[in-house]
Amino acid sequence: MEFSPSVIGQMLFTGALMGSIYGAVAMGFSLIFGVAKIINFAHAGVVLWVMYGVLVAVRSGVAHPYVAGLVAIPLCYVIGHGVQRTLMARVSAMSDDMQIIYTFGLLLVLTYMAQFFFGPDVHFLPSSGLAVEFGGVVLQVETIIAGALALGSALALHAFLSRTWLGKAIRASADNRRGATLMGLDVVRLSRVAMALSFALAALAGTILVTVTTFYPLRGLELAVLAFVIVVLGGMDNVFASFVAGVLIGMFEALGTLLFSPSIAHMAIYAMIFAVLLVRPQGLFRRRATK
């Protein structure tokens, strides 16, 4: 195979766009870890169910994927709020290990419920076939829209967290939960908002994933591990860094796939994260935590 600049550019672009979707998944995971101190592996299960939901809506001719997404996002926001009130209400008080077990349990339930109802088969939506070319790089329209939406959501979330009072309050309670409580912030309510936002992000990620990739029930487990890996790379509770780490992982994956094979790329990613965990558990982008 020839590795012309345009082929490499093609892979890097596609990788970055895919990576930005991973980033969107990881941001939700990271947000809820930071604010509510919940390690929510089930996050990927929500993404999976949104994918199937959109699929059903499209297959039954009810709506275009993007329209379905527009419904799914607010719906998931509300569901997330409810989940934090019920299923997750006691989770943040548990030890790390218990949380991991609990949310992994929920992930298994969500993943295999999907398999039970939709079967183990691989699904995908037909693409529009439209593509854009510039400088020898050909990109599917869906991929570009997906990347743009993911990037947009990252910027919007970033703006929300850094510009609005509520966003700052969410960051504050992630930064110092006890301090936030003592100065009168309602940490429980902020956790609910964070969970709701995290669900909304999952809905967005699910919608755009449907439009660009194939999927199957076990995708839930894969995404969970992948999101964890990305979030570790970004430094666990740093939301925007998670997005950047997602893009990096996407490019890394694409390049590895080009040079070797998808599974070698994945092996390299896991080996890299393994090294990161051992050497810099605080993530790539942060100075050693002071405590």
């Binding site: 009072w165 960051r171 504050a172 110092n176």
Partner: peptide, 27 residues
Amino acid sequence: MTMRGMIYVPEGRELFPSLTVLENLEL
């Protein structure tokens, strides 16, 4: 209680270290 105007400045300060000074004040 804080909403009613009882404001507590805790022992050990309990600031938000990774937020800016201005953001701490705004909160």
